[in-house]
Amino acid sequence: MNNVFVYCEIDGVAVEEVSFELLTKGRKLANQLGVQLEAIAAGSGITGKVEKDILSYGVDKLHVFDAPGLYPYTSKPHTSILVNLFKEEQPQICLMGATVIGRDLGPRVSSSLTSGLTADCTALEIGDYDDKKQGKHYDNLLYQIRPAFGGNIVATIVNPDNRPQMATVRSGVMKAEKVAEYYNGEIVYEDVAKYVPDTDYVVRVIERHVEKAKNNLKGAPIVIAGGYGVGSKENFDLLYQLADELHGEVGASRAAVDAGFCEHDRQIGQTGVTVRPKVYIACGISGAIQHVAGMKESGIVISINTDPEAPINQIADYVITGSVEDVVPKMIKSYKENSK
């Protein structure tokens, strides 16, 4: 009872990376609270395929729901699993990925249980809370920390009275670390029919096309990111040229994506991809919090900006005051001349 739960997202018969990241965070939160970490995996034909991987992140108890109709994901059956299981287990915290699935499932579960949910958290901590209006003190609440309001501020959200405290976190925000290759957790194969009424299986997936990500932004050691200051789609080509030379990947800020300079799948930030490259070259990026949330753990940050006071310059190791059109070609030229 009152444990920390993580909903594991399943692709085919494999667990998504974001779930391992959340299990790692969930393990730490459970240790801090002195409770157990439990996990839920729901899919079709997953028995024998997912258990060892999930347990290796330090899961004390894994609930497996394996039945036809649970894959591909649809909203109602997975909602019923969580809602009915949570009514029995009374978890204090539930984490899930801020993926298309997590953002479809989380709100439905929270509405059903009248519990609070915070989307797209960038940090999760345990702490106390004083409700001054009601004169009440709460121990050990989950601080759900996220940039808000277009990324202009950072808000800490708490759910004082309702359980579970629910949060979604994007892929790449937390780091996945196994506890042990063979972790001795309990596995429960649940009777799906007990949790999911037949009437839940009404939305039918007719067709499904999933392509491997077109870019390797998440794992790239060098990222050249462009912002609104790059000025145009054509100028973004300069970034691709530099990325080619340095064997890096091109990323973009939300403003550049909204302006149509770059595709959405290259967006870095709270509502995009989180990156941790060795070198991050920010071209014409002002540095809204929502962007910095997705790159702040980069090794060396180089900022190229016409504005010497751009906020991102404060976290940059090198600040080049100049335009992207002028500086980037010079970098390409100089790299060609000096490498090898």
Binding site: S115, A155, N162, G287, V292, I315, A316, Y318, V319, G322
Partner: peptide, 21 residues
Amino acid sequence: PTKVKAVQNIVFKAKESKRLT
């Protein structure tokens, strides 16, 4: 059920940056 505990304008931890032209 969700309450805002705190709101901050984030001050970046300033690094010692090298300034270049």
